[in-house]
Design a protein around this nucleic acid. Structure first.
Lengths: 247, 247
DNA sequence: GCAAAAGTGTTCTAGCTACACCCATGC
DNA sequence: GCATGGGTGTAGCTAGAACACTTTTGC
């Protein structure tokens, strides 16, 4: 503790003259997930056609503008890539290991976005090679439905994202953001979404009861009065979510 | 979707020539918490003696070096400010709103650090004006034991940190990082730590049982065989944590 | 004796799980 | 009639919370 002056000098420089420092770049990466009721959890990826990691698949992302909030930057990139405008988005984690991008030091703030499958405006065959990939987490390992490799540290981002979703799905309402229509959905659809995220089947009777308990009985959701004949021969009730109606 | 070229150009620039962009600065802020068994939860703050927010208290922090991992940067700042070397540290959240620092765009990655009270080498009265402040979260508001104001958005960082600690304390072992000695502690001490973080008193009988269930019966902790006479007239058993022994 | 922590026992409840069973209907 | 989803009922297990009670020892 004898070098107080140099420490204070360093502090001074760092605090008041950041412009003179070599600075890391700040990027955002977006993990867009959707659930296909038949195929399960899917993540949106873009094929890289330049080095590094040429030919690998990567998360949509890009550098944050100097006057742009991180969340806005993520939302902008998302819209540019997928056409999706309004959806649930939350910060996942910030990845900043030196060397995670071989070109230069890049600190990447990762965001999770949840999109109803039918709201995705992007159509494969556009300028960029981009598409949805089925993904799951089995025994701690990320498994894709195709034989693909991800660029940078994006696979560990996917892993962390699925773990986060699994951890939150039982005590938050995030799963509802994956419904095609929060104002008109069946318990069956919601159950499929839970199953896709958790990577295991759930007991329908118990799932129904927990939905009634946690949503309907608490005034968070109600029956619309309409009946759904889409998923079963026997009609089921439509429900309506009563919060975050804007989504 | 008609302006594919300009979009791709933009993408090109952003991806391959980040040096030409105006870039935000990247900083780390550290929320160092400790628990005083008598006074409760405390956070470490430093008084600012320059604008902006002159006279306000702020979290220790600073800019991240170009070749330094974020975690390492946080650990370095922590050691410089408090003398604490080895302790539990985890990423909290990244704050990046434009305008959160009035001087320039600064993106700050916040880390939570948990320190046993007796390991803090820093002594008030050093070069900088720095000290521990009792803090709690009551009805969603951050309350300090002194009439102080925090610089920047540091109060919302404190709020988020306490919420995170409260959310994790019941299903992780983080509380153990606040013990003076993980290899020699009593249930009483651990209970006081839980109470400090949760901001409420717990039933001692039930707390004891849950500790036995979650730690001892699962092989994560065991009795040392020694008895403790520090906290009560009646001696109590010392326990030893059997994981993360290095901490 | 009193206060305060150490420690044991009991009861009640809420939530989750498993499973059995009936209903409705398209094929 | 059979498969599939819709929907109800019930029994068991477990973690928590609440609370009553005894033990130990410094003051």
């Amino acid at each position: 503790m004898g070098k107080k002056t140099s420490k204070k000098d360093k502090e001074f420089l760092k605090t008041y003259d950041p412009g003179s420092y070599d600075r890391p770049s700040v990027a955002v990466d977006v993990l867009v997930f959707t659930v296909d009721l038949k195929k399960g959890l899917e993540v949106f990826l873009i094929k890289r056609n330049n080095p590094p990691f040429e030919g690998c698949w990567a998360l949509p992302g890009g550098f944050a503008g100097i006057d742009e909030s991180l969340e806005k930057a993520a939302a902008r990139r998302l819209k540019e890539e997928t056409g999706i405008k309004k959806l649930h988005m939350e910060q996942l984690y910030t990845f900043g290991e030196p060397g995670r991008d071989p070109r230069t030091r890049v600190i990447s703030v990762a965001y999770i976005a949840l999109a109803p499958k039918d709201k995705v405006g992007y159509s494969p065959g556009d300028a960029q090679d981009a598409s949805w990939f089925g993904v799951s987490l089995m025994e701690g390992r990320v498994v894709f439905d195709s034989d693909i490799h991800l660029a940078f540290d994006h696979e560990s981002m996917v892993k962390l994202a699925i773990e986060r979703l699994r951890g939150k799905i039982n005590y938050t309402d995030i799963a509802l953001n994956l419904l095609d229509d929060k104002q008109r959905f069946t318990i069956y659809e919601l159950q499929k979404i839970h199953e896709a995220i958790l990577g295991k089947e759930l007991n329908a009777a118990n799932f129904r009861r927990s939905f009634i308990m946690n949503y309907v009985n608490k005034g968070l959701a109600e029956e619309t009065g309409e009946l759904c004949k889409e998923f079963s021969s026997r009609a089921s009730k439509y429900f309506r979510y009563l919060k975050n109606t804007a989504g």
